[in-house]
Amino acid sequence: MSYILSILPALTSGLAITFEVFVVTLVFSIPLGLIVAIGRISKINIVSRVVQLYILIMRGTPLLLQLVVVFFGLPYVGIVLERNTSALLTFVLNYAAYFAEIFRGGIESIDIGQYEGAAVLGLSKIRTFRRIILPQVIKRVLPPVGNEVITLVKDTSLVYIIGLGELLRAGEIASNRDASLTPLMVVGVYYLIIIGVFTEVFKRLEKRHSYYQ
């Protein structure tokens, strides 16, 4: 037990990076994902095509590879980013693609009658989307979004490839130094607690959005 206490400070400092990546990614990728989703279902062909290509690349290549390309590859075309910035940019772009597809699914699941009804009431297109469609979309996409959020918590461990010391790496360091598996177990508990909290948060969110049911 005293051993576990002795490694906690180092692990907690790893937790800082994990949280940074997690929070920034969520804050930026969800709005971006919504914009991308709207672009994806745009009737302007070229917009939809470009967005589809973006989604294909983001979902179609490993996140680990994308991190490497952004950090080590972009300097070859003159774009030099800091370690943290590279990680955050890659994560936001990657997760926005996943969120976009979830939102698209949500938007397309809304019955055409809702649009027709709004049109009859004389609502503008933007008002229809904001006041009628979006609230229903949010209700429907909560479970898959919760899924992505949980995946994101664990995906943050990938930033080790560009030398950022997040939680799992902090555990690996301690494990290597002390020739023991215990630090990795402690790291596992950390992840479990974080994800447990988010599971509960989403449970409540879903309950709050379960009006009309």
Binding site: I7, G163, G165, A170, E172, N176, R177
Partner: peptide, 17 residues
């Protein structure tokens, strides 16, 4: 200087990080 901070005893982190 780049180093692998998991490689004891050449370069690693003590418990104070």
């Amino acid at each position: 200087m780049g180093l692998d901070d998991t490689f004891a005893p050449m370069g690693f982190r003590d418990k104070q990080n």
